[in-house]
Design a protein around this nucleic acid. Structure first.
Lengths: 192, 192
DNA sequence: AGAATAAATTGACCGTGGTCAACACGAGCA
DNA sequence: TGCTCGTGTTGACCACGGTCAATTTATTCT
């Protein structure tokens, strides 16, 4: 039970996903319209909303697919020697996250500020990110007066801050990379 | 020039603001509908959009009014001795910012991720916040290997992080206050 | 096979933010 | 007083996300 008719359902579901991915690769995340997705998938509008709770849910799924791909790469990397390597490793993912303001806004909204009730896909990528970064911090030449997990949460906070400033009119003299470098050095290797 | 008919315009503008404030105090920020605001103000919908570029612009103004009131209080405070005082001082503002998810989302969206073209009201409150916090950090018993401004930017990053986690399903075992305390101690007073 | 049942799909409809060509109003001028 | 012109105002209209009672399609039972 709860698994009848699954064949047709799965087909429709993947048709919708395919259509959405097509729109995004041809245009952008921001330009995606539910209307166009259902048109391409050849289904009615209502069908979309019986497969995804809302448009954001689809977007969250598609965006976290990308993020998870970056995390897969990051997981393969061994310990990192210094902050420079750190930033260099994270840069591809950061570039994706800030490639569209729409993407960054959605990530921000669902990263931690996500629905209390249900843990979303993006929220889980943030969790995963903390784990990956923690593992690096546990063995690298970084401060050890606080736990790797706390350190990693800090890295995340500074990452978000640096990305946010990229979109800000007041602070675009310095590059995202330089800014992040400054933040992370101060956070990971304080020199009292 | 550019200032003819200003009397009528100003009257309409404040009618709109008053109506909006009334709706918010009776209901909430989230519950505000442009439709209702113009109805109460006794003007047409189009008028609203000749006074505010969009609904967010109105919200930004109203929210930053609140934030600026908190900042006025904070500016009066002299140097703070320790991290505990710090958190205690910031708490009222934090509580407002997280009193509605709608508010926090809007603040987040326009804090740094704001429009590149125009610097918005909320963006300016964040700027102001950094200044206030910097002035505290410059004289308090905190690390001095990095500039007060950089320290203050970090405080902001951790503040956002702590607030975001308040809305997160994964991390609501610890209170916002405790979490912030942990973050700020690690950031402001590292013990190598 | 046909009836009964469960589930997926449909599309007309709604709420709400936002647009814009037409219109009303007030100021300056003859 | 009446004409002109720039600006403020109007409200019908659009775009787009989301809903839901009705309908179609598959499944199970006899």
């Amino acid at each position: 039970m709860t698994k009848t008719l699954q064949k047709r359902t799965l087909a429709t579901h993947s048709k919708l996903l395919e259509a959405a991915r097509a729109v995004i690769s041809e245009k952008s995340f921001e330009a995606l319209r539910v209307e166009e997705v259902v048109l391409r998938a050849g289904v009615a509008k209502g069908t979309f909303f019986s497969h995804f709770t809302d448009k954001d849910a689809l977007m969250e799924q598609l965006i976290s697919e990308h993020i998870n791909a970056y995390l897969n790469d990051l997981e393969l990397r061994k310990a990192l020697n210094d902050v420079e390597d750190f930033v260099e490793a994270l840069l591809p993912m950061i570039n994706f996250m800030t490639s569209e303001r729409y993407i960054f806004d959605l990530i921000l909204r669902y990263s931690g500020a996500a629905a209390i009730e249900k843990v979303g896909d993006i929220s889980m990528t943030f969790e995963r990110h903390v784990k990956v970064v923690s593992s690096w911090l546990a063995v690298g030449p970084f401060r050890d007066d606080i736990s790797p997990k706390l350190l990693a949460e800090g890295v995340q906070a500074f990452l978000v801050q640096a990305m946010a400033l990229k979109f800000c009119a007041l602070h675009n003299s310095e590059s995202l990379e330089d800014r992040l470098l400054t933040y992370l050095k101060a956070w990971l290797t304080p020199t009292l």
